[in-house]
Computed example of a mutant assay.
Amino acid sequence: MEEEKIIVCFGDSNTHGYDNKSGGRFNRFTRWPMVLQSLLGEEYLIREEGLSGRTTVFSDPLHESLSGVETIRPVLFTHEPVSLLIIMLGTNDVKARFSATAENISRGLDRLIKKAKAAEDAFLHQKVNILVVAPYPIDEEYMETSVGNDMGEGCAEKSRKLSKLYREIAMLNHCHFLSAEEIPGMENYPYDYMHLSPKAHKALAEALAERMDTYLS
């Protein structure tokens, strides 16, 4: 019997499944990694590696252990052999306290990808296959909600610039690429305008499932 293909979903609260209506977490029937699991079936094993507040490379002065580049290697080692690593990060990187431009954030993604690829020797020379998903942009209305003061100003504008820059970084690193902004049905929940709605989780999972053969080739 052929072994299951392991897919690691490495992201932030929008991968963890934060429900900004209740302040809790969406159930497994709603979170996009688990919806993807149901769509792909038993030939695949989806591993959820979402962490609220996670960034590409930035260390948060208010919360520890949120830099993706510091944890990507042990995550890959834990779940090897990994058939596909899906990276969807950048939403937290736009926070004002990091003082990072969209270009800075894309360079953080580049560093994260290179750190993941450097783990290849630990997989008996298995190639680390990576899909970069540019996160769905933050809506301007976020500043009018409870997250506005924590995020700071200018976040929506920076988040809209990430897709184009991420596409270029993915191409340079020979990674697959998908922009969440281009998927029909994507939207933010109207409670803070930066976390995905249940409808968006489903739309993202369906888009990934439709393209999975391409990503694994």
Rank of each mutant, 00 (worst) to 15 (best):
residue 2 E to F: 04
residue 3 E to A: 08
residue 4 E to T: 00
residue 13 S to F: 08
residue 17 G to I: 06
residue 17 G to D: 02
residue 19 D to C: 02
residue 23 G to Q: 02
residue 24 G to Q: 03
residue 25 R to K: 10
residue 27 N to H: 11
residue 27 N to W: 05
residue 30 T to C: 13
residue 30 T to Q: 09
residue 35 V to S: 05
residue 36 L to H: 10
residue 38 S to R: 01
residue 40 L to N: 00
residue 41 G to L: 06
residue 42 E to S: 03
residue 43 E to K: 07
residue 43 E to D: 08
residue 44 Y to P: 00
residue 47 R to G: 00
residue 48 E to S: 06
residue 48 E to G: 01
residue 53 G to F: 07
residue 57 V to N: 04
residue 58 F to W: 01
residue 60 D to C: 10
residue 62 L to E: 14
residue 69 V to R: 00
residue 71 T to Q: 14
residue 80 E to M: 07
residue 81 P to M: 12
residue 82 V to P: 09
residue 84 L to Y: 01
residue 87 I to C: 09
residue 89 L to P: 00
residue 91 T to K: 12
residue 91 T to V: 12
residue 93 D to F: 01
residue 95 K to D: 04
residue 96 A to E: 15
residue 97 R to I: 11
residue 98 F to E: 11
residue 98 F to Y: 13
residue 101 T to W: 07
residue 102 A to N: 07
residue 108 G to I: 04
residue 116 A to L: 09
residue 117 K to Y: 07
residue 120 E to V: 08
residue 123 F to N: 09
residue 123 F to L: 06
residue 123 F to A: 06
residue 124 L to H: 11
residue 125 H to V: 06
residue 127 K to Q: 11
residue 127 K to I: 02
residue 128 V to L: 04
residue 129 N to I: 04
residue 132 V to C: 08
residue 133 V to P: 00
residue 134 A to H: 01
residue 134 A to G: 12
residue 136 Y to H: 13
residue 141 E to Q: 15
residue 144 E to T: 12
residue 145 T to G: 05
residue 145 T to A: 05
residue 146 S to I: 15
residue 146 S to L: 14
residue 147 V to W: 04
residue 148 G to H: 11
residue 148 G to K: 07
residue 151 M to L: 14
residue 152 G to R: 08
residue 153 E to L: 15
residue 155 C to Q: 15
residue 159 S to E: 06
residue 159 S to Q: 12
residue 162 L to F: 03
residue 164 K to Y: 06
residue 167 R to H: 13
residue 171 M to V: 14
residue 171 M to E: 15
residue 172 L to H: 04
residue 173 N to H: 03
residue 174 H to I: 03
residue 176 H to K: 10
residue 176 H to Y: 11
residue 178 L to F: 05
residue 183 I to H: 02
residue 185 G to T: 13
residue 189 Y to F: 12
residue 189 Y to H: 14
residue 192 D to K: 15
residue 198 P to D: 03
residue 203 A to D: 04
residue 204 L to N: 07
residue 205 A to D: 10
residue 212 M to I: 14
residue 215 Y to C: 15
residue 216 L to M: 06
